[in-house]
């Protein structure tokens, strides 16, 4: 087990109202090299869990352990190792890259601050190699990101996260803001990287079809609680909880025959 999240709870202040509890007793594990999907509707707490896993916020209760490190209280060398080995990719391909940095600076920043390459030339070579790997042209290294499309920016974000060889990549809705024809490129890239680098991916998404495609383990969340978790086949083949069933039934299918049959069946069920 690479990372374990043990019954964490989190509230936000909502003064003058009592604090709003957004996570209730959430427990889940991430194993080496596996892709795990956190799915749920807005307000399910899936992004909050991602932030806790990245130590961007701290839960009030529970424990998060990464490879022997107590994440919530980590300091010094432990925290530095955690920061190197757990990385992320955000939803917004526009806001998630510093507009004042060149592609080389963005991708090379991790190498620089973790002192993974001794010289600027060696860093540059690693950046070029990484750009090649994610399907970018290394000749674009000195450009700023504003002239790049959303899909290319997401590739830059992925390269930036992966160049320091993390063991976990947390992705919060990484394709939600992309054009349909570009989403598949990024999904394939993530899948490819996961296999090549034996990377664990935590994939936070509202799009269940994408999660089914990418993740072998799925955690279903509703109002800050884990409703159900299991393998892809368990969740998509035979969901046990009514909430999961209703969620899956509502996903539209891009096939008129199947899609309409599904809707008709579901409406018949709700009518009864």
């Amino acid at each position: 087990m690479l990372m374990s999240i043990d019954s964490i709870s989190k509230s936000y202040n909502a003064f003058p109202n009592p604090p709003a509890k957004v996570l209730h007793d959430v427990t889940l594990n991430v194993d080496t090299g596996e892709a795990i999907g956190l799915v749920g509707e807005s307000g399910s707490g899936k992004s909050t869990i991602a932030k806790c896993m990245l130590a961007l916020i701290k839960p009030e209760e529970g424990r998060i352990t990464y490879d022997g490190i107590d994440v919530i209280h980590a300091k010094g060398d432990d925290l530095r190792r955690f920061r190197r080995e757990v990385q992320m990719v955000f939803q917004d391909p526009y806001g998630s890259l510093n507009p004042r940095m060149t592609v080389e600076e963005l991708i090379g920043e991790g190498l620089l601050i973790h002192k993974l390459e001794p010289t600027a030339a060696a860093r540059r070579a690693r950046v070029a190699e990484m750009m090649e790997m994610v399907g970018l042209n290394p000749n674009d290294m000195d450009r700023y990101t504003r002239s790049f499309s959303g899909g290319q920016r997401q590739r830059i974000a992925i390269a930036r996260a992966l160049v320091i060889r993390p063991r976990i990549l947390v992705c919060d809705e990484p394709v939600a803001a992309l054009d349909v024809s570009v989403q598949a490129q990024v999904i394939n890239l993530l899948q490819d990287m996961q296999k090549k680098l034996n990377l664990a991916i935590v994939f936070v998404a509202h799009d269940l079809a994408v999660v089914r495609h990418l993740c072998e383990k799925i955690v279903v969340l509703h109002k800050g609680k884990v409703v159900e978790q299991g393998s892809r086949d368990e969740i998509f083949g035979a969901p046990k909880m009514p909430y999961t069933q209703s969620l899956l039934a509502a996903v539209p299918v891009p096939d008129p025959v199947v899609g309409r049959a599904r809707r008709a069946a579901r409406r018949l069920e709700t009518a009864n």
Binding site: L54, L56, L79, R80, R83, M88, N98, E109, I113
Partner: peptide
Amino acid sequence: EQPFVAGAQVLGVSKWRLMTKHVLPN
């Protein structure tokens, strides 16, 4: 509050670098 600042934190940049390289120029 911008996502790229959270991104820099996750990467493990120091407070000094966070402010001078990411926050201040923007």
